[in-house]
Structure formats: structure tokens, C-alpha cells
């Protein structure tokens, strides 16, 4: 999922300056899991905005806000409220914000949260970055652990000299990913291969990661494999 954190309310108010009638949109997926844009947070935001003197014209929490068609459909169901709206405040990752902008051509959209990273959830409230979507997955060479995502320097040839007792110099609360890679590779019997292949792919190919990314394909038709 995409991890997110709430923006400060003062920043939200500054963005919304000059816009009085606000429609709030959350997201039933990642932002709900991160407790930044679920039903509860949308309701809290409604209260806060009203306390600040804004009018909330409506709220919605689409299942997956980054799905443009679904989100547009949800907003069509609240056509009247949307018509009376000056601006949308979207409590989802940046893709959700732009998904709303895609279907709402004539109205401003503003983000209410910050997108953080592509994450795994270990348990509720424990969300960790594991992938930087580099477009050229290398975890197979590192015992299933990504050094691009988990080493601040994204090194491919092993650790720097800054780790201490297996902890990272940049954030001593976090494990040095190289200690984890070696530990896991030892358990999986891959240590020799890891040491041999470590960095053998050469310098990282960043051309594959040129933005904006685009993936266009022929969708499989329903009922057909």
C-alpha cells in the first residue's frame, strides 16, 4: 500500500483560503489502513472545517480512490452536493488527489495528507517501506530483501562503514539492511550466492525509472484466461 500521514490542519486551511464550500473525499484502501483518510478521519476533518467556519457540502470514501472511474461514479451519486462545491479536499495519497482532479475538471483539488512510501503492514499501526518501485527488481539477488528501499544510500555492493551493532547510522532505530540480508541469506542457505551476485548487475539502471511511468496493456476480457 501507499503509506500516508496527515498534513497539519493549518496547512490545509492555508490551501483552502478563498474556498468556502468544501467536499471531503477519503479512500477506503491505503488511507483507511493508515488512519489518515478513512470514514473516521473524513468525519473528523468535516468537524474541524466546520469549526473553522467552512461549509462541508458532502463527504465520500470511495473503495479505492486512485481508481478514476469508480471515484467519478461515487461523485456522480452526489451530483447536487458536488455542484455546490468550491473545492475538494482529498484525504488519500497523491494518486487519489489526482484521480479526483481527473474527473472534476472545473473544480480545484487539494491534498489533506502526505504520501510517504510503498509499504508493508506488519500489524495494525506498523507500516514499513519495502519497495521504491525502481522498475528493475533486484531482491532476488539479496535474499528477498531490497537494499534500494532499506539502505538510505541504496547501495548494491554491501554496507558502508557506518552501521553499529547492526543498526543504521542514518537512523539508529532501524536495522542495517545488510545485516538483515546476511542474516536471512544464512538462514535460507543463499549466503554464498548473495555474496557472489551482490552488485553483479552493475550500476543501477535509472533509465527504467524515468517519470512519468506509464503502463498500458490490453485488459484480459472477463471469463477468458
Amino acid at each position: 500500500m501507499i503509506a500516508s500521514s496527515k498534513k497539519a490542519f493549518e496547512e490545509i486551511l492555508r490551501m483552502l483560503e478563498g474556498h468556502e464550500r468544501i467536499f471531503i473525499i477519503g479512500c477506503g484502501d491505503c488511507a483507511t489502513q493508515c488512519q489518515t483518510g478513512g470514514e473516521v478521519e473524513v468525519e473528523e476533518m468535516k468537524q474541524q472545517l466546520e469549526d473553522a467556519g467552512k461549509t462541508v457540502t458532502g463527504t465520500a470514501v470511495p473503495d479505492v480512490t486512485c481508481n478514476v472511474l469508480d471515484t467519478a461514479r461515487v461523485l456522480r451519486q452526489q451530483k447536487e452536493a458536488v455542484e455546490q462545491t468550491d473545492a475538494f479536499l482529498v484525504l488519500s495519497c497523491g494518486t487519489g488527489v489526482q484521480s479526483v482532479a481527473d474527473s472534476q475538471e472545473s473544480k480545484p483539488v487539494f491534498p489533506g495528507v502526505n504520501s510517504l512510501f510503498s509499504a508493508i503492514t506488519k500489524r495494525k499501526g506498523q507500516v514499513y517501506e519495502r519497495c521504491v518501485c525502481c522498475s528493475d527488481c533486484v531482491v532476488g539477488d539479496y535474499a528477498g530483501i531490497c537494499p534500494m528501499a532499506r539502505c538510505p544510500k541504496g547501495q548494491l555492493h554491501g554496507p558502508c562503514g557506518g552501521y553499529d551493532e547492526g543498526k543504521c547510522e542514518v537512523n539508529p532505530e532501524q536495522d542495517c539492511v545488510w545485516a538483515l540480508i546476511i542474516e536471512r541469506a544464512t538462514k535460507t542457505g543463499q549466503l554464498e550466492q548473495v555474496l557472489e551476485h551482490m552488485g553483479s548487475q552493475g550500476a543501477k539502471n535509472w533509465q527504467a525509472d524515468t517519470h512519468p511511468g506509464e503502463l498500458v496493456f490490453e485488459p484480459r476480457r472477463a471469463g477468458k484466461l
Binding site: 544510500k153 555492493h157 558502508c160 557506518g162 547510522e169 550500476a203
Partner: peptide, 23 residues
């Protein structure tokens, strides 16, 4: 490879690390 950016006096700078010491 070099020290990480956040340990210095310009912690908001964009770190590059396109290569590392070995590459």
C-alpha cells in the same frame, strides 16, 4: 560512498548515490 546527507549541515539536500564505492 560518502556520509549520508542528513548527518551534515544541509540535511534537506537531495542525496544522489547513483554509484557506490564499488561501482
Amino acid at each position: 560512498t560518502g556520509d549520508y546527507t542528513t548527518l551534515g549541515d544541509h540535511p534537506q539536500a537531495k542525496p544522489v548515490f547513483d554509484l557506490d564505492s564499488v561501482s
